[in-house]
């Protein structure tokens, strides 16, 4: 598998802008997702904002998909991108879970 036809296709000249913008937006939207999630959890935002956080995660996932398909990534890289997207989805949950537990232990 390794080393076979990973680079066969050229990227179309008109696709470059979309690729760069979507890959920058991956982390921008990802940042919004994480930021809103954290803000809701520390009560800076009301509970109703939570679905917006998940909406941003979906946008992140879409941008990853768009970027990956325009770049013609191979099967392996596509899997790596899916892992990264899921990692991002879980990250703030894990952070909050652990922060919460430590604070519980130390402050009560």
């Amino acid at each position: 598998m390794i080393g076979e036809v990973v680079m066969r296709q050229d990227i179309a000249v008109n696709d470059f802008l979309t690729i760069f913008v979507s890959s920058a937006l991956v982390l921008v939207f990802g940042g919004f997702y994480v930021g809103i999630y954290t803000a809701v959890k520390v009560n800076l935002l009301k509970k109703w904002a939570m679905p917006i956080a998940y909406l941003f995660w979906m946008l992140t996932a879409y941008c990853l998909y768009l970027m990956g398909s325009l770049m013609h990534v191979g099967e392996f890289t596509a899997k790596a991108l899916v892992v990264a997207a899921i990692g991002l989805l879980l990250l703030p949950h894990a952070v909050y879970f652990m922060q919460h537990q430590v604070h519980e232990e130390n402050e009560h």
Binding site: G3, V6, G31, V42, T77, V83
Partner: peptide, 27 residues
Amino acid sequence: EYWWEIGALFSALEPLPLVAMFIHVLY
């Protein structure tokens, strides 16, 4: 060429700790 796969996988993960550090400070 195997570095393509290794580089792609771990590079995709590299931003995650940076996001984590960011939330950690704000949190």
